[in-house]
Amino acid sequence: MSTVYDFTASLLDGSNKSLADFSGKVLLVVNTASKCGFTPQYEGLEALYRKYQSQGFVVLGFPCNQFGGQEPGDAADIARFCSLTYDVTFPMFGKIDVNGADVHPLYRFIKGEAKGVLGTEAIKWNFTKFLVDREGTVTERFAPSVAPDQLAKEIDKLL
């Protein structure tokens, strides 16, 4: 059986990062965008990261431009926006597709592990969140409308 740790993705700086580097940590995997109504959730995601980081929790941000063209910038633009606007310090990856023919393999996997409403796999919008336990198993999927601070109890259970 595969786990989240079996995948690799490119960081914003273009370097490859094995998710095995996060082995033993609780992860929150989120597809993000800089020009979305949910973009202010970066603040809540960063707050969760800072609160729980010392206990082995990491937020992984995956920018995506598939929903209304809401992530139009390149890697440098995304990095600058996240740093200057929300002081994001959690790992941010390069822009990916979360649906369609060019879906990133990580997202193909996690969507199959935690299906959405009525068993659908497709990501419906930016800031869909996947919670992953310390063994690399996807435990839950949360809709974009679920604010990061609403995840604290679920994170606590896994820590």
Rank of each mutant, 00 (worst) to 15 (best):
F7W: 06
Y86I: 05
C82Q: 02
P105H: 12
L158M: 07
N31M: 04
V138R: 02
G112P: 07
V103T: 14
N16R: 05
L48R: 00
F93V: 00
D21R: 11
L151E: 04
Q55H: 09
D156E: 15
G69S: 11
S145W: 05
F90L: 06
G44T: 10
P40V: 06
F62G: 01
K129S: 03
G94V: 05
M92I: 05
I78L: 06
G69N: 12
R141A: 08
I78W: 01
L159N: 06
R141L: 09
F142E: 02
S54M: 12
P91K: 04
P144H: 02
P148W: 03
T120L: 15
T8E: 13
M92W: 02
S18Q: 15
L48H: 01
E46C: 09
V88W: 03
N16L: 10
Y49W: 12
F90Y: 13
N16V: 08
A152P: 07
T8V: 10
L12Q: 00
S34R: 00
V98P: 01
Q55C: 12
N126I: 00
V103F: 09
G136H: 07
Y107P: 02
C82N: 05
M1T: 08
R141F: 10
A47N: 10
K51L: 09
W125D: 07
V117H: 13
K95Y: 05
P148K: 03
K95L: 09
Q55D: 14
Y49I: 03
F81M: 00
P40A: 10
T85E: 12
K124A: 15
F67P: 04
L60Y: 04
D156F: 10
D149V: 10
T139F: 07
V30K: 00
A101D: 12
R134G: 07
C64T: 05
T128I: 07
S145I: 07
V4G: 03
D21K: 14
L118N: 12
K129F: 03
L12Y: 01
L48Q: 01
Q150K: 10
V59R: 01
